[in-house]
């Protein structure tokens, strides 16, 4: 009697917790899931993520289903008499082999996606991304265009002295501009500590390590503005060095690049990596 009430209460409590989570998700414009993104790779990653997720859900439903059935029916309060079996070679072999097969089923598409992610051949544009405490520098290697990209959210908003804007903490003074439909190679490195460059819509993040260079590529399919953040703890203002990528159609991109080249020859300071770096570029 008492135990049945408890099991019942458990169900209610769990249900309440879940429905709380879901109802919060329902009315705000909330994202519950990974973005599908705007590159072929990010789509692959999304589908891989969903595949594994659903496999886990199915396994979970089966295992927990068996368990709850057992909890409901095999209770002492219902007069259950304990069986005494304690092994069965057949089921034990089965539940070793079946998960193996499922894992192989997961590993195949995962390997394919990974191989495609590593294929940075034939990129048409190379950009070096350098992480600093606490901002990013973008360097269009072939065009001599180089600039810093720093958080542009005013201190007053962070300090709760002004209402927060729509892109609070995800806005910068100079976004990284990329052409749509072109394969772009991105080289990441850092000038002080390890950072990690991450835009969820592109489908990956890559660490930026001082003294070392990492390469990764992307090919954006849709013009737009995509936002991300530094993903590796890098000191006090780790949470305040966002990334904004502005993807422009090829022609507009070229135009922008020409303009930047002109600007950078007139103001060399922008082009110079010595541009004064105040530690903690923005003081909080």
């Amino acid at each position: 009697m008492a135990t049945s009430r408890i099991a019942h209460g458990g169900g209610i409590a769990l249900g309440a917790a879940l429905s709380l989570a879901w109802s919060v998700g329902a009315h705000a414009d909330l994202t519950l899931n990974m973005p599908q993104g705007v590159t072929a790779i990010s789509h692959d990653v999304y589908h891989l993520h969903m595949l594994i997720f659903w496999i886990c859900v199915v396994i979970g439903v089966v295992v927990f289903g068996v368990m709850f059935w057992s909890i409901y029916h095999h209770r002492k309060s219902r007069g259950a008499v304990p069986a005494q079996f304690h092994e069965s070679t057949l089921v034990e072999v089965l539940w070793t082999i079946v998960p193996m097969m499922i894992l192989i089923g997961m590993a195949v598409p995962a390997t394919g996606t990974l191989v495609r992610m590593y294929d940075a051949r034939d990129a048409e544009l190379t950009i070096k991304v350098t992480g600093y405490q606490w901002r990013w520098q973008y360097d269009y290697l072939d065009d001599g265009v180089k600039f810093f990209s720093t958080l542009s959210t005013p201190q007053a908003q962070i300090r709760n002295l002004a209402p927060k804007g729509e892109h609070y903490l995800l806005e910068v003074d100079h976004p990284l501009v990329l052409p749509v439909g072109k394969k772009v190679r991105i080289l990441t490195t850092a000038a002080d500590v390890i950072h990690s460059w991450w835009v969820p819509e592109l489908g990956w993040k890559k660490d930026a390590i001082p003294g070392f260079i990492n390469e990764v590529w992307t090919q954006i399919e849709k013009p737009g503005i995509y936002r991300g953040q530094c993903a590796e703890l890098c000191g006090r203002d780790h949470g305040f060095m966002p990334i904004v990528v502005k993807a422009l159609p090829e022609a507009e991109f070229r135009q922008w690049l020409e303009q930047m080249k002109k600007d950078s020859t007139s103001q060399t300071a922008q082009n110079d990596s010595r541009a004064p770096i105040v530690p903690g570029g923005q003081t909080l």
Partner: peptide
């Protein structure tokens, strides 16, 4: 889970 199966649980 199999240990719970057909036990007499409290």
């Amino acid at each position: 889970v199999s240990t719970m199966w057909r036990g007499a649980m409290t």
